[in-house]
């Protein structure tokens, strides 16, 4: 018990903000939940109508508010509920990914994936991997707002 407490005190736990499309990835994360698949509870999910609706501003804002990593997940290419929303997302998020790296943010901090409603296990693995990738980086303070 003592030992466990010490561990939780010392081990850094990354915070993830996950923008999940309502039709696929959000359903996928639900499936992971109802299937009792174990995965870390580090991700704060935010359901959006479509990955194409994720503005770069959302991602920057998540980092500003202290997210250590940001995940955007949508339907597989070809499966978009709005026909081409994820194609547009791919282009837009490619650019923000490049920009984040360009100014020197660790490439690991931003991740994009395609997860269908049937891929509960895949979603769980993505979060698991993401947490493990983020852990060695420590807290993200480059884009985090200064207080007071």
């Amino acid at each position: 018990m003592m030992h466990e407490q010490q561990q939780t005190q010392t081990q850094y736990e990354p915070k993830i903000v996950a923008f999940l499309c309502k039709w696929c990835s959000s359903a996928g994360s639900d499936l992971a939940g109802v299937s009792r698949i174990q995965y870390p509870a580090h991700a704060t999910p935010i359901t959006v109508m479509c990955s194409g609706s994720v503005s770069p501003q959302y991602i920057l804002s998540a980092f500003n508010k202290g997210a250590d990593g940001v995940l955007v997940s949508g339907c597989h290419i070809g499966d978009c509920h709005y026909m081409e929303g994820n194609y547009l997302a791919r282009r837009k998020l490619y650019l923000i990914n490049e920009m984040l790296q360009f100014i020197g943010v660790e490439p690991t901090r931003f991740r994009m994936s395609w997860v269908s409603a049937a891929e509960g296990a895949k979603f769980a693995n993505i979060v698991k991997d993401f947490v493990e990738d983020l852990r060695p980086l420590g807290p993200q303070d480059k884009l985090k707002a200064q207080h007071p």
Binding site: S61, I103, A145, Q146
Partner: peptide, 23 residues
């Protein structure tokens, strides 16, 4: 979205948003 304080985080938010809006 972005505070008026000219601090690093807010400045980055501004310039990154602007750059992406100009893509």
């Amino acid at each position: 979205w972005i505070q008026r304080s000219a601090t690093r985080s807010e400045n980055i938010g501004y310039h990154m948003t602007r750059a992406l809006h100009l893509a």
